[in-house]
């Protein structure tokens, strides 16, 4: 069976550009021996993380909320590559996607370790998926784009993907397909 790439994305009905990007990603990814699994987080039942730390000390590795948050975490850690796709909000992911990402905390241990001269959480699992972040903007905005890139770099320190890459696409762009393909290439093993 080919490798699995899981795409977590936000609502497509209210944002046609999300649908367009998903179609492009399917074309790029499924032309090889990769399986693209898409998850629309806006259709899921995901309570916000309540900061109880039970996923670290009471039910280690699992959230106590019995909702799709555990599905998100399971799908994340069992994928070869994960793609996050959303509008950029204040330089980061939109609230819809971020609420889902906040529920990935069970995937790491509560214990600290020194990594890249900083304190980070120890890994719960031996291997983590590659990570690709795709952010959408109405127009080019250097500040927002820099924040988005920094976010992925920080996430990479905590979720330790073997490879990671980001791509920012604006509404007016018509020739982003090659950049998107290069991003998938950079963030996975082979495309």
């Amino acid at each position: 069976m080919g490798k699995t790439i899981t795409l977590f994305h936000t609502d497509t009905k209210s944002d046609p550009l999300i649908s367009t990007i998903i179609r492009e990603l399917k074309t790029i990814i499924e032309s090889n021996e990769y399986h693209l699994h898409t998850i629309n987080v806006s259709t899921l039942s995901i309570k916000p993380c309540q900061g109880c730390f039970h996923c670290w000390i009471k039910t280690p590795g699992s959230c106590i909320h019995k909702d799709d948050g555990n599905t998100i975490a399971h799908q994340y850690i069992t994928s070869d590559t994960v793609i996050f796709l959303s509008r950029i909000s204040f330089g980061g992911y939109s609230s819809q996607l971020k609420c889902a990402i906040d529920r990935l905390i069970p995937l790491i241990l509560p214990f600290f370790r020194k990594y890249h001269d900083e304190t980070h959480h120890k890994k719960r699992y031996q291997t983590y998926p590659n990570l690709i972040s795709i952010g959408l903007l109405k127009d080019h905005d250097d500040q927002k784009e820099q924040l988005f890139k920094r976010l992925l770099e920080r996430n990479a320190l905590n979720f330790t993907p073997p490879k990671f890459a980001e791509c920012i696409i604006t509404e007016k762009e018509t020739e982003y397909q090659q950049r998107l393909k290069q991003t998938i290439q950079k963030g996975t093993v082979v495309v």
Binding site: P48, F90, G92, S95, D102, N158
Partner: peptide
């Protein structure tokens, strides 16, 4: 707010949006 996965907690982002 507390740092959440290197950024702002999801519900707070919604308020800001």
């Amino acid at each position: 707010f507390p740092l959440y996965v290197d950024g702002i907690p999801g519900p707070l982002i919604q308020t800001l949006e």
